[in-house]
Nucleic acid binder design. Structure first.
Lengths: 263, 263
DNA sequence: GCTTGCTCCGTACGCCGTACGGAATATTGT
DNA sequence: ACAATATTCCGTACGGCGTACGGAGCAAGC
């Protein structure tokens, strides 16, 4: 018994065949090494499928994008989708990259503060327009042209300001992560209102008595005081728009402070 | 036909009955208004159910907690779970609050910088220990004792440092949101490695050739340079632990800078 | 013209949350 | 003591999900 490869698998050294999802992601760039394919032409294009899926996700959330529902919307049988896309996960990756690719990236303003804010605000706006982006998991490490272009643009916002390469990456990650967390909070707030059919405030009123009864015997001096002040200021239990402004100001101040120590 | 209430529904003005999930969340606090209940005793307690669900979620993720699987683990028929808990969503809310309640909150150190860091690190550690916490959605606005105690503790870290009430709330939200986004990145990184069976680095190597082919014709000067520098520094495509340190330093600096303008 | 590879699709499997109703059981009201 | 009632536990069933598998028909390559 040598260590030779399994004879059932022919001698081909299996040069780590590339992930098929990668070709799909970059389909518009690689494009046309197309020799005509056998069999019936596809009635639709991958873009048709992805666009329909994005529209469904915008309307119904990521969980609302089912292979069955999507197929019906496209006039296909469910299993026919699998000739366009290997599976649902890959479809989601394509949706994400399509969204990233479509957005026209605004020119970066002058001034580091404004540039950093722009990076965060663009991401925040995108996550608000497509809340399902925040629910996406499991598409790492698939990297498409939309994500690549976006990263390049984000880095250009912090190029030449005095950060080293690693710090540039970390700064972008910090801004994007923060914008995501704000959008996440906003999305959760909206979901709560939508699903309960009543506003947050109404729920608190309806349950204030029970909450008071139940919390008696515990002391929440700070939470009571701060919660009330925040509630009055927000007219809600939270106000993600204000959290964005507050947090962004602090983060940008922090980055500027780092650079200030160097000049 | 007057506007009188539906006679099928007796005159009771329906005083907005409290959410049953609230009583369940606060079951240990309200506790014993217990008159003995009719029918067979419950074989288990709500805590048994919630603890088993937490154990399942720790091992298999939130999606791995199915009512069927949980019931089997507890020796019950699936539908019997619904005598303990109104539904899966409520169960998840109980799991979250149980986790929050269990963690012993460390004493807050001296010095604002260390206090702010502690708030973020506690949340980060918790999200790492229970990655499914980040997948929880739709449990707003249910508020349990664990969440209330936690909020009180977080506020105590920023009490009396010169922030007004609304700023206290926003500062805590900023720290917690940031810690969540770091933990989210870390969790995604681990998931990618687990599900692909190979390390991130191995995937990039296996697909480097295809990526190079596919990205030719596009220019990514910054992404190429920074990505390489970061990759070498991290020995991976990302390094959430470093992102935590970098981002936390910037955020704390930003908060301190805000306070510095006031003294 | 035969073979091959492709598209499209019907069926089926094993999951999911949970609505519904019935049998057994323990307390409550008489 | 006995009937009424409330509660637990559970079997069955419904409508959803992703997708494996195999077959039918079509277009290109030999």
């Amino acid at each position: 018994m040598t260590a030779s490869p399994d004879p059932a698998e022919p001698a081909a050294p299996e040069p780590a065949r590339p992930d098929p999802a990668l070709r799909l992601l970059w389909r518009h760039v690689v494009a046309e090494d197309e020799q005509p394919r056998r069999g019936p032409r596809q009635r639709l294009s991958v873009d048709d499928v992805v666009d329909a899926a994005i529209a469904m996700a915008d309307a119904e959330g990521l969980a609302g994008v089912s292979m069955r529902g999507l197929a019906q919307r496209l006039g296909l049988a469910p299993m026919s989708l699998y000739t366009y896309v290997p599976g649902r996960n890959e479809l989601v990756a394509l949706m994400v990259d399509q969204v990233l690719a479509r957005r026209e990236l605004p020119p970066l303003p002058d001034g580091l503060r404004a540039r950093l804010e722009t990076v965060a605000r663009v991401h925040h706006a995108e996550a608000l327009a497509h809340p399902w982006l925040l629910d996406v998991t499991g598409i790492r490490p698939w990297l498409g042209p939309g994500a690549a272009d976006r990263y390049e643009w984000q880095l250009s916002a912090v190029e030449g300001v005095g950060l080293d390469d690693v710090e540039m990456d970390q700064t972008v990650a910090l801004l994007v992560g923060f914008a995501s967390s704000i959008a996440h909070a906003e999305h959760e707030k909206r979901r709560a209102e939508r699903e309960s059919g009543q506003s947050e405030l109404a729920w608190w009123e309806a349950n204030a008595e029970e909450l008071g009864r139940v919390m008696s015997g515990r002391e929440y001096p700070l939470a009571g005081r701060v919660g009330q002040a925040a509630g009055e200021a927000y007219q809600a239990a939270s106000d993600p728009a204000r959290e964005l402004e507050f947090g962004l100001a602090r983060i940008v101040d922090g980055v500027l402070a780092l650079l200030a120590t160097r000049s």
